[in-house]
Every structure is written in C-alpha cells, then in structure tokens.
Computed example of a mutant assay.
Amino acid sequence: MSEKVLVHYEVRDKVGILTLDDPPANTYTYEMFQQFDAAVLKARMDSNVEVIMITGAGDKFFSAGANISMLNEADPYFKYYFCLHANETLNRLEHTPKLVIAALNGHTVGGGLEIAMAADLRVARKGAGKLGLPEVNLGVLPGTGGTQRLCRIVGKSHSIELMAEGDLFDFEAGLDKNLVNVIIEAESGDDFKAKALEYAKRFTTPNKASKAVGNIKRSVQTGIGLPFEQALTVERELQQQLFQSADAKEGIAAYVEKRKADFSGS
C-alpha cells in the first residue's frame, strides 16, 4: 500500500510549491512533517527552484497546526522528539538560501502559524482566515519555534501578550502586527494561489538576481542571532560571493548603460 501524500511538491516558473494536504484543516502529524522535511530538502537541492512557496490545500485552511488527536494519544517521549524534528525542519527552511514565501490561503493558527513564521515573507488572501497562537488554551506553549520567532517579528512584550492571551485575529490585523507582508484580494482560492505565484515570481530571474535575494535572506537570518561585528563578517563574506557572480556584473553594467538588467541566477 502506497504512502498517503500529505505534502505535494511541484515546480512552476522557478517557484517550488509545497502544499500541505490533510483535510479538513491540514493539521500535521509526524508523517506529514517527514514529508515536509523531504520536500524542503528537495526544493533546496533543485536547481530549477529559485523561490519556495508554501500553501495549504483547499480554501479554508493553510494549517491548523499539530494534529491534536495524535498528541492526545502520544506519550511525552514521542511529543518531545516530534517537536525536535519539527524544529529541525523549520530551521532547515530558514537556512536554505532561497526566499521562502508562505501563501496563507485560509486559517493559519497554532503550528500552522509557526510554519508560516519560518518563511521569509507571508502573503494572505483578504478575508480568508485568522491567525494566532492559541496553545495556552491547551495548557502548553507554541513549541515549534513560536515563542522565539514571534518575538523576533513583533517584539518581546507584544509577543508575550499575543501568546498569553491566545486569541485569534484576522489577516488584516496580522498586517498591522507585521505578521503578514501583503494582503491579496482574490475571487477564489485558486485565484489567490495564482496571484501568490505571480508575487513569488517577482523574486526569480530574470526579474531579480536570485543569488542576491538568497544571500540577503541568509545574511539576515544568520546575522540576527550574532553579535554585530560577527554579523558584519557574515554580510561581507556573502557580499564577496555576489561580487564574483555574473549577475553582479550584469546588474552594475545595466545600471551604467541605463537599461533593465537581465539576471540569469549565475
């Protein structure tokens, strides 16, 4: 009997699309996160992928987080290693030098928001759902990086307030809280995903130098956790890599010649 596909992988226009698919709420189990981890690694190694986009199947949920029935049946030993693997997977996503966009097609709560916060940018369908980390209502904390990523996005005091209250709020409020970068108006779920793909393509060649985009991401993601002088060292080394690239030569030449650059990703 073949394994159920819980994470779909496809490449369209240089964008690797990872779709979480376990209806009705795309909640994740250890099995889904194993597939998600494999998909992250596949997108990382795929030379045809310049940007990664994560979304949920259907129109109602990006993801409602961890499968509560699974957690209810599991012992503390399993739960610990389940969280450890989830942390490792999301760290891999952050460490991959390709821009990651979470396309929030529906409710994005609990561990679903923790996945989205591990992305570099978050775009959401207008009026399509709510955000939040309600784990406190289960007597636990957001244990897939939520306590650490949220404070780095919205600040220490505000993140404690949001997690301690455990309330949900709509995508538009998420924009005000800096949890959402862009709100997209769409007539349907398919229309939203098509528009999210068009947004993602803005960061691929020939529109952008994808290596530069990836190194900007790596400089921020690595540097934010380092002392300032060490972070500047990371920045210089990544810049030196770009100085040796064909796209840097093209970008500088295009500026001097007053024309639009045609980036190749090399």
Rank of each mutant, 00 (worst) to 15 (best):
3 E>Q: 04
5 V>Q: 12
7 V>A: 00
7 V>N: 02
12 R>A: 15
12 R>S: 15
19 T>P: 14
24 P>Q: 01
25 A>N: 09
29 T>I: 04
31 E>C: 02
31 E>L: 09
31 E>D: 15
33 F>K: 03
36 F>Q: 03
38 A>F: 03
44 R>W: 04
45 M>S: 14
47 S>L: 10
48 N>I: 01
48 N>K: 05
52 I>M: 01
54 I>V: 08
55 T>M: 08
57 A>C: 01
57 A>M: 05
57 A>E: 07
61 F>Y: 15
65 G>N: 02
65 G>H: 03
66 A>E: 09
68 I>L: 14
69 S>H: 05
78 F>E: 13
78 F>Y: 15
80 Y>N: 07
80 Y>F: 11
85 H>R: 14
85 H>M: 14
85 H>P: 07
87 N>A: 00
88 E>S: 00
91 N>L: 11
91 N>K: 05
96 T>H: 00
97 P>D: 02
97 P>N: 02
102 A>Q: 00
105 N>V: 12
112 G>I: 07
114 E>P: 12
114 E>Y: 10
117 M>L: 15
121 L>T: 01
124 A>V: 10
126 K>D: 12
127 G>R: 12
131 L>A: 09
133 L>T: 05
138 L>W: 08
139 G>Q: 06
147 T>E: 14
151 C>E: 13
153 I>H: 01
159 S>C: 08
163 M>A: 01
163 M>I: 05
164 A>W: 10
167 D>F: 13
168 L>P: 07
169 F>K: 01
169 F>L: 04
171 F>W: 01
174 G>R: 03
175 L>Y: 00
182 V>K: 06
185 E>H: 07
190 D>S: 10
191 D>P: 05
191 D>I: 06
193 K>P: 00
195 K>P: 13
196 A>I: 08
207 N>H: 11
209 A>K: 01
212 A>W: 12
217 K>I: 12
225 G>E: 11
226 L>A: 03
229 E>S: 01
231 A>Y: 14
231 A>E: 13
236 R>C: 10
236 R>N: 12
241 Q>R: 09
243 F>P: 01
244 Q>S: 04
248 A>P: 04
248 A>R: 10
249 K>W: 08
250 E>Y: 06
254 A>H: 09
258 K>N: 14
263 F>G: 00
266 S>D: 05
266 S>K: 09
